[in-house]
Design a binder for these strands. Sequence first.
DNA 1: GGGTTATT
DNA 2: GGGTTTTT
Lengths: 492, 492
Amino acid sequence: MNKFQQPGIFSLLNFMNWNQKNISNASLKKLLHCVDEPHTSREDQELLEEQRDSNIKLSTEQEAVKNSITTKRKNVFYTGAAGTGKSVLLRSIIKTLKENYGRSNVGITATTGIAAINIGGQTLHSFAGLTPQTQYYEIEDIIENLSKGAKARWKKTEALVIDEVSMLNGNLFDKLNRIAQHFRCNEKPFGGLQLVLTGDFFQLPPIKNDIEKVKYCFEVDSWSESLDHTFQLTKVHRQREEEFVKMLNEFRYGHVSEKSSQIMSNLEKAPIYNNDGILVTELYAINKYVNNVNTAKLAELPYKEMVYEAEDWEPKFGGRLEALIRNCLAPKNLRLKRDAQVMLLKNTTSELVNGSKGVVVGWFSKITSKFYEDVPTEDSVSLLPVVKFINGQTKVIPPFEWSLENKYKKKVASRRQIPLILCWAVSIHKSQGHTLERVKINLDRVFETGQAYVALSRATSLNSLQVLNFSADKVFAEEKVINFYKSLTELA
Amino acid sequence: MNKFQQPGIFSLLNFMNWNQKNISNASLKKLLHCVDEPHTSREDQELLEEQRDSNIKLSTEQEAVKNSITTKRKNVFYTGAAGTGKSVLLRSIIKTLKENYGRSNVGITATTGIAAINIGGQTLHSFAGLTPQTQYYEIEDIIENLSKGAKARWKKTEALVIDEVSMLNGNLFDKLNRIAQHFRCNEKPFGGLQLVLTGDFFQLPPIKNDIEKVKYCFEVDSWSESLDHTFQLTKVHRQREEEFVKMLNEFRYGHVSEKSSQIMSNLEKAPIYNNDGILVTELYAINKYVNNVNTAKLAELPYKEMVYEAEDWEPKFGGRLEALIRNCLAPKNLRLKRDAQVMLLKNTTSELVNGSKGVVVGWFSKITSKFYEDVPTEDSVSLLPVVKFINGQTKVIPPFEWSLENKYKKKVASRRQIPLILCWAVSIHKSQGHTLERVKINLDRVFETGQAYVALSRATSLNSLQVLNFSADKVFAEEKVINFYKSLTELA
DNA sequence: GGGTTATT
DNA sequence: GGGTTTTT
């Protein structure tokens, strides 16, 4: 059943298939700068296709990693900077793992929806039977309440792949280890199943919560107890300029050479682009700036504005609405127009997830069941936005309910809102995992380790990159991460 | 009874009076750069003494504020930039309020210990019967559990003064209002007692907690319901250079003129100081830098090092030690030497509080009850640091216990450690409320509204100030605060 | 990032 | 500052 469905909004999506309706694809294409920015980066896609077609050989270092995993069946973590072919290698590994173990015995997971799509898998939470609340529960409670499906998966899985493992909180990694041990009735790390982990810890650190210190995965004991081998990929496969690659590698470690500083200061002026309708995505450290840009861009559009007000609810006494709203990206008032660049805020289908980009192409009336290219004067209360996503799918987007429950599973607050935000400009945090064809980065008020590196490595080329407010002190890495990578190098 | 007392450490302080012992005051003085940095700034002290002696007249605007409070008996908030004589005015107001109402019927409070000392009062929490946990409790629970003393104070108090009100969380302000209404059996704001509030909201914002959004006091309804008048002091009384004052006023609002930028970039080189032993205090945005400097400074001292390891405790199951440690400035290992510059971490007596500065002058042996100028080889386990504070007092500093209780008042974690930290370098946050004779500021990684302003306004003069990593984007103010002050100006 | 507040 | 994760 489609997860878009919410009480009161029945099957809108099932009887609509906008791909076959009379929306001109040609006219949409020019609005979709995202068309050139699939979740899978262009380079990765090309490489992937190439490989699928001609079965191109992996590099020696890639083969070594793959061999260790698929032949020697070791538990492996491998890492590497952007462009070293981590994804290509992972897809190749997954293919062989499925051949070895049978496709249903391999867990293909990633820590975010976007990353999961990239490898044709699911989120780690979805695989493991976790919920966002898991981090607050004791291991005994988690084990007791795990769904039947999740239990079955833990039992039969022979290999578990986790991509973007740098975003996984170390404490959660520990819990996963114990869950696996419990359901597999096996004291070995992760109950003896084969682990394949990959990611780059120089990106943004895992997300903090209110009850415990943030830990990287590599900081918990079960990490080193679980892994047999760790590899670093060094050979760069992507077609980025050598100069750019070199600079990014410096920045990854928090170093800024005199030459890089020079290059960055030359990027202050906007590049001249062809007038081909491909938009520039702007990146900022903080949402205040993001919102300013998006508000301005929306104002420029010549269409009618729809305002969706969130329906908030809390009980009369002891509600936690404030807490809910703080942890929910959906705004009180969402303003949309036709042609607005938008990003989905919720994982919905296996193809449309939190972070999927699209453009508003019109409106669907719940009353008349008709599609309108602009807000019709006769009906402006029952309209839902229709969004064309970069993967080609066009969908009506009904409201979604974010809710907060207390420990007795009683709902204590909720917000119902259309799960979209404007995305001409995006926070650097939200941009992680995306490749951007044309990008304008403002480093004002950068505050996190790896943040400048993540922003800059979104770009595919120095020719499609503008950088404002660069200074060397904005580029810094986590000391723990540097030390961890140092220890890897010493081992090798 | 002295609050320094802890189980197992009896009356050390009562039988020690180092002021009369054989420690050379002359030799201490040169170690105490803090000697020139009392909690009350030098200018304020001078002005205060002047005024006390000759009863100098308040300015017209100051008289207007005082008149509104002491004659018209209005509820007043007054504000103003650093140096506009808020403190001097407050002391004059307090004097008259005590004459009007009787000294025991006026609550003289401030949100921090340092600020409370300044006006001869107590902390707001101490007056009101609150604990640090109050923020997590419902109003009904607070009212029920209030101590008898606090209830009596709420009943009989006729005027309540709160200094540094910008640090007070709006939600707590609301709760205070309700507590006052309840115990005074009076529906009027704050149960009808007269309110005198002062502070500068352009300083650092109130401290966040895990359960609610930070609110400034002026954002809650009870603020405007309570206050009859609001005043802004504009005339600058302190003897700072006019150029410096003008610049700070710009920065307060987040503006940076071309000229100010020029001045700041000229402050990159260190000023040349007399070799008079007065040290430079270094300010940084983040503790990593603070710790680096302090570690280096400690290493330079030629004396023996004492390492105090915190005694941590948590029950076998379900402890919250990690949470405690996160909210506790006391380090796992505290390294000290004679001559180390230190800052006290706990409110202890009415004269020694969190933020009080001093220097380690030697060691007191719990076994021999003797004082040692350096760590003696025969006894290095039973030694407690002896600290000479800037107010002239010399004290033995025994360990303090930080603890965390669950809702049933059961202890769930604790850390025992000497309540001192090194303070050659200090975080900008911790420096708020201090005046510094000589200061070196590094603005790298400034992240908070008002942070650069607070750092720069610690200095007394451009000639005793060094500033590294200045850039215009580091100077910014909270938009809510700007709007609030705009509305004040429009009223006036 | 970083910080305040306490009594029986 | 800012961000991820869910289902029977």
